[in-house]
Design a binder for these strands. Structure first.
Lengths: 263, 263
DNA sequence: GTTTGTCATTCAATATATAGAATATCATTC
DNA sequence: GAATGATATTCTATATATTGAATGACAAAC
């Protein structure tokens, strides 16, 4: 796997008037990805930073309790300060609060995992609320990121996001599916998503797993969020015909509560 | 209430080699505290930043998806990026993982709320794992911060933290309790905490609420974490004699699992 | 419809954060 | 136990982030 962090970071640093912040964010993301605490050199090398600069960034982050430093091993890791920020975000997030009861109900009623996700442009989506039914389920945690155009939510974003086709095609080409659809197939499914108001992924993203997604608007224009139901193949199939309208209805109710409207 | 954010920020900015990062962290904390999205001026004023600098900081944070910007209203708020970081922190946090089963069991068995907290020096503690029993309970969320020396955990930190008394006295003076103990009383309770290995707060922090806390070490020296049980007065009293040794045993087991040892 | 005030944003001079070399520290190897 | 290599850290000149003033945008008041 090639590492493009240095390039994207270099660009962000270049046209920012506060490059230290881009560097800090890159460090946080790197430490987040890492399986274990990292020494200065590894961080600097990975991100293409000068070690001394990287040291100053790390020291500032340690002072803010966003990064921990083990003086024994001279290694850096994420610190609990990020938790506090996340809690504050969740506390004031209207969508997460409104979506939770709805997705709890759906998860319980249909025995599937249901997510409330936030759409971050064409790049990715973030799970901001999760409900798991009992039994064997795919486990997803709040804060997890997925590529924007993957799976059922991707078809919604393509269908309702008003993006130019060239942009979609370029992004589509980079996706990793277990069982990839052709671009033509995918476009047809996007068209169907537009017609029926929700997206379906039948085992493309993960083999044997069906994903449904219905868009939610918090304003006019592109959808801001989505409700996503994830079920293991056979078990879901039986209830899919019922789940589809239930998910769509819940998403529409949320759109209304958020004060938004489609299109 | 006086606002000391500008002063502490000014100091952090001054002796840092990456002041933009201190400013960014202060902005994130301010947005986290705020009940609603804030405009540029309000942020700059509150933190004592010049508006143009503040604008550049905000733009960098927006680019990193740590802050959201509403182009309509020109207001800034926390964005979902902080969630992703928090999830990554939780994923690799040994204490949170190890503590969860233990606190779940205690919460269920004794019908109380049980927390795993991380001790951030003498300043504050952060709840990193939470277990609630059914019924009426005090609700605490992961990521919540409390002053270090307050309540039962505070007595543990004072008892086992090896801090100079002058420092403790100064910090103690600033605490807000519903029913404050005198410093002398508190010192006696700290002494008792040292003797029995766990701390008790009988309605000082919150009237009618009993809090127990037992320290956990991940290394030699000061305790790094604690297990905290929170119960509403009368209901807890009946089981307190059983809960105390159970909490202490769980904390000792965790210390062993974390590879630490009391000093 | 003009004026006034407030806010966001751009701009240009300068204080300073950063890059790269130099130094210090610490294992590891011979 | 000296030498080597790798790392963290300090130091200093310079490219640049920051500042404070100027401009632009917009709403409220008259």
């Amino acid at each position: 796997m090639t590492n493009n962090a240095p390039d994207t970071l270099a660009r962000a640093v270049k046209d920012s008037k506060a490059p230290a912040i881009s560097r800090a964010a890159a460090v946080l993301r790197l430490l987040g990805k890492s399986e274990s605490p990292l020494p200065l050199q590894a961080i600097a090398r990975e991100l293409g930073l000068v070690p001394s600069t990287c040291l100053y960034v790390l020291r500032a982050l340690v002072a803010e309790e966003l990064v921990s430093f083990d003086a024994e091993t001279k290694r850096y890791a994420l610190e609990a300060g990020v938790l506090t920020l996340a809690r504050q975000w969740l506390r004031r997030n209207r969508f997460a609060d409104l979506a939770q009861p709805a997705i709890d109900r759906l998860a319980h009623q249909f025995g599937v995992t249901v997510l409330g996700v936030q759409i971050m442009g064409l790049d990715h989506i973030v799970a901001v609320a999760v409900a798991q039914a009992g039994g064997f389920q795919l486990s997803v945690q709040v804060g997890t990121r997925f590529p924007a155009l993957i799976s059922a939510t991707g078809r919604c974003i393509a269908a309702f996001g008003q993006y130019p086709e060239a942009e979609l095609a370029a992004r589509f080409a980079k996706l990793r599916w277990e069982d990839p659809p052709t671009f033509a197939d995918w476009q047809a499914q996007v068209e169907q998503t537009r017609a029926q108001g929700f997206g379906v992924d039948e085992g493309n993203y993960i083999s044997g797993v069906t994903v449904l997604a219905a868009p939610v608007w918090k304003a006019r224009g592109k959808p801001s969020h989505a409700l996503v139901a994830i079920g293991v193949g056979a078990a879901l199939k039986a209830k899919q015909a019922e789940l589809e309208p239930a998910l769509l209805t819940a998403a529409r109710a949320l759109t209304a509560q958020m004060g938004g409207e489609p299109e």
